[in-house]
Design a protein around this nucleic acid. Structure first.
Lengths: 233, 233
DNA sequence: ACAATAGTGTCTGTGAGACAGTATCCC
DNA sequence: GGGATACTGTCTCACAGACACTATTGT
């Protein structure tokens, strides 16, 4: 019980999501080639060890890691789970605290590109990406995608993927991309408007058709709807 | 980035719930009086450091800790969250992976007493207990109670607090105790029976009134209902 | 006028809430 | 029969799904 027993490695892993065009994207980091040897699976989720000198707590640790790997702030951060075992990291017993981060779209709807070397957005396909990830990061990513999808059935999570001002059609499209299925327009609008989710603005988005009213989020915290969108069959 | 940087303490904390009479109970452990000095807040949640020699992963670590502190097996275990900061433990930067454990009632509905020294069941009042806990364990307990309550609105979690065979009234009472409010009988029975939750047995519990049919759980994993019990107002 | 997207109205279905009524045991 | 608990039937209400319909812009 002495506090100098061997301790596991402690790190933090971020699964950062963004929207671009018609897809959901996740932030990956390239494995640093330690000692010049390129790993067989060079991609991984952004991760960093807990720094007991600089990090006050887990949340500030995630924020630091996300900033170092992407330069981007998270519109919303939530703990996912933790993974820890003797086998998951070749360096020894390692535990990681994982977080889901939602990144707001930038004005021009570009995928919030990072000016940081070795970071890259990858499209989410199914519950993963189309490349292999090292360690157990494929499992962690799948869990994050599933958490995002299932929580989007009954909360306003997808709203954090939009920019500050958006139309209800934008929001509906965000849900459709995240959930991977169509959402019925009328029911969707009633749902959003009867919850206290958004504030209507007096501005409209102009286009070659009827202009759409712009909205912004009313709260910083997610809203929980009274019923899930799709009764889980 | 050297792997011999100072590492945080890593531990696992269990919030174990049980049902007895008309209340929900949680397992507490007495702080060992290190060096004979009794702590000012002698009670805490069962907790133990990750043992990199003996524990294969976090789940086996929780099982070991729960067994050591209570001698009881968990009918259901689920990760709650993790807490980690420089300040939460006087010994230094400490992270703990917390789990919620559900303990089945024993045949005679005794609160599953433990033959282990320094462990004790305490009734849950509100989202805590009526004594102070050390470290941030009051916050962890509150989070566990809230998780149990909110997840009981749309899953079969309370079923794990019953013994193997139970009546629908037993199950309803479990929900009522966990949720802290009455549940309407007719709707409750329809809900339970139309989900695939239970298997009817050919046996009945006899009493000084109409005998009640006994049931057992159909699945080991919790069932998710299509709608929450109470629309979150 | 037409294309295109924004936004609404109406009808249906599902499952929870309320509550009364019936069923079946022991005494 | 009476007390007690088990179990069912009926009516209402909230809200999601389906889908058609109207509204308002640019070209």
């Amino acid at each position: 019980m002495a506090s100098d027993d061997p301790r596991p490695l402690s790190s933090v892993t971020v699964v950062a999501f963004a929207l671009h065009e018609t897809q959901l994207w996740v932030l990956l980091a390239e494995t640093g080639d330690d000692a010049g040897k390129p790993a067989s699976k060079p991609w991984r989720l952004p991760e960093g060890p807990v720094d007991v000198e600089r990090d006050r707590d887990l949340l500030s640790c995630v924020r630091r890691v996300l900033k170092e790997k992407s330069g981007l702030p998270a519109a919303y951060l939530e703990q996912l789970a933790s993974w820890g075992s003797a086998a998951r990291d070749p360096r020894g017993w390692a535990a990681t605290h994982t977080y889901v981060a939602m990144i707001s779209a930038k004005s021009d709807a570009l995928p919030s590109v990072s000016a940081v070397a070795g970071a890259e957005w990858s499209a989410v396909v199914g519950d993963g990406v189309d490349r292999q990830l090292s360690l157990d990061h494929e499992e962690i990513l799948a869990a994050a995608v599933n958490r995002l999808r299932s929580k989007s059935e009954y909360t306003s999570l997808p709203s954090y993927l939009l920019s500050a001002e958006f139309t209800l059609s934008d929001l509906q499209r965000a849900y459709e991309i995240v959930l991977g299925r169509n959402v019925e327009k009328s029911a969707f609008r009633t749902r959003i408007l009867s919850a206290d989710l958004v504030v209507p603005l007096d501005r409209f988005r102009e286009a070659a058709n009827r202009p759409a009213r712009l909205y912004r989020l009313r709260h910083r915290q997610p809203v929980y709807f009274p019923r899930p969108l799709q009764p889980k069959e």
